[in-house]
Amino acid sequence: DKATNPLNKDLDWDGINAFCEQLNKELEGPPLATRLLAHKIQSPQEWEAIQALTVLESCMKSCGKRFHDEVGKFRFLNELIKVVSPKYLGSRTPEKVKSKILELMYSWTLGLPHEVKISEAYQMLKKQGIVKC
């Protein structure tokens, strides 16, 4: 709640770090975290989406393979794709949110090249013209 409550208008780094630690500890941590974050990233409220993307970014840096593998599934990547695609939520999503998603995906293609589904999803977005630069 501390990390992802949109009523918190400032980033709570202690809360975010605690979220990342907790998801590492729990057996079901990675799937639970990705489901929660996907839902919030799809929020029409820009701050809620940006906040959740910041938590996702931070956890990808500090968590290990279990979380990387869960984020690297199409089950989660599809939810990010929906946000940037005009066929789904893209038309009503702020540019800032869409840009951050594409930046994160690009960074993971470089930093986690073994997560091949991330690269595949990113290449698909490039091919469809969603990635403009």
Partner: peptide
């Protein structure tokens, strides 16, 4: 509930 050893996944969404 999702199994700890769940390796299942969906197909890539085509847009």
């Amino acid at each position: 509930t999702v199994s700890f050893h769940d390796d299942s996944d969906e197909d890539l969404l085509n847009i």
